[in-house]
């Protein structure tokens, strides 16, 4: 791999182009010629169709009043009624607010902390120390959310939780706070937990991008008398910009994917008004209340919005003359 900008270039180059139809004869001839490659990929194409494309037909339910006993064919079509219901439902609007807030917080916090960590790691002079810090910072990524949620709730616990103890010893608070019992704290706590779990892991890609920056630029800057901070702001940050833009586009496509596990595991009746997001809403309506149509409509809404955001972000990046995904 050359440098970060080139890497970004390959992505645009890899842009999928569907070739013109070449006719059935060509297809048959090639299939016979390359029967082994066909044999190797066919089972997995079938797998892909069954497990990833076939369920899309379930979106039909979003336009029906689906009754499990009747099935797709017998269920009554209701047009956009499910969507209308959703947008008039106070709970859904609240859930949308939570989803957007949490994914925005996670997006911004995630980017800022991972880039900062990568830059600071890059500035460490002692290679051994750097490696130890890196290894330890990757560790939480490998822990399950079940484990992390357990660690978070014990750290925040009212009796003997380390956060409360630290805050009390520092004289910031007089009484322990029941962090997970106050809805308003939830978004921040979730953002902090996400950062704890993935900041090290997310820094890997930026660190790789930094090492691809031309070292001569740093040497030249040093001769010109640039300070460390100046070098960071005028060489390192612009150097990793293409990678940041691409990851930003990819992540904006996941704008309504605020995660599920963390919220579900840290949620309780007291913080639910802030913790419940789209995925939990879908789970609650779909599987618990068996309102398949409404849950499907909510889930479908999520995917459609994701696509719109993905294309919009890609377009904007293109307009601004930045690297783009496709």
């Amino acid at each position: 791999m050359a440098d970060a900008a080139n890497v970004a270039g390959t992505i645009v180059k890899n842009k999928p182009k569907i070739k013109a139809q070449k006719g059935l004869r060509y297809f048959v001839r090639k299939s016979i010629e390359q029967k082994e490659l066909l044999l190797m990929s066919m089972p997995f194409l079938i797998w892909l169709f069954i497990f990833k494309y076939l369920p899309l037909s379930g979106w039909l339910m979003a336009f029906q009043d689906y009754k499990p006993a009747r099935g797709f064919q017998e269920s009554e079509f209701v047009g956009f009624d499910q969507f209308k219901f959703l947008f008039q439902d106070d709970r859904f609007l609240q859930v949308m607010r939570n989803t957007l807030a949490m994914s925005m917080i996670n997006l911004v916090l995630g980017f800022v902390t991972a880039i900062t960590l990568a830059i600071l790691l890059n500035e460490l002079r002692n290679v051994g120390f750097k490696r130890i810090v890196q290894t330890i910072s990757y560790m939480p990524h490998f822990l399950s959310w079940v484990v992390v949620a357990g660690l978070v709730s014990s750290a925040l616990s009212v009796d003997d939780g380390i956060i409360n103890i630290l805050l009390m010893n520092l004289g910031i608070i007089d009484e322990p706070i029941m962090f997970l019992g106050v809805g308003q704290y939830f978004w921040g706590l979730l953002g902090a937990s996400e950062v704890w779990k993935s900041v090290g892991w997310n820094s890997i890609i930026y660190l790789a991008a930094i090492t691809m920056i031309d070292q001569e630029q740093y040497e030249a800057a040093e001769i010109d008398g640039a300070t460390r901070l100046q070098r960071i702001f005028y060489i390192t940050l612009p150097g990793i910009k293409p990678v940041v833009v691409i990851l930003m586009i990819m992540n904006i496509g996941y704008i309504l994917e605020s995660g599920f596990e963390a919220q579900y595991l840290l949620m309780n009746p007291m913080n639910m008004d802030y913790a419940e997001n789209l995925d939990i809403f879908v789970l609650r309506y779909g599987l618990r209340q068996a309102n398949f149509s409404l849950a499907t409509a909510a889930g479908m809404f999520k995917t459609v919005i994701s696509f719109i955001f993905l294309f919009a972000a890609n377009k904007v990046a293109h307009k601004l003359g930045e690297a783009r995904l496709f």
Partner: peptide, 9 residues
């Protein structure tokens, strides 16, 4: 990027 969602799955 194309996820059918919990219920259809």
């Amino acid at each position: 990027y194309m996820n059918a969602g919990l219920i259809p799955t």
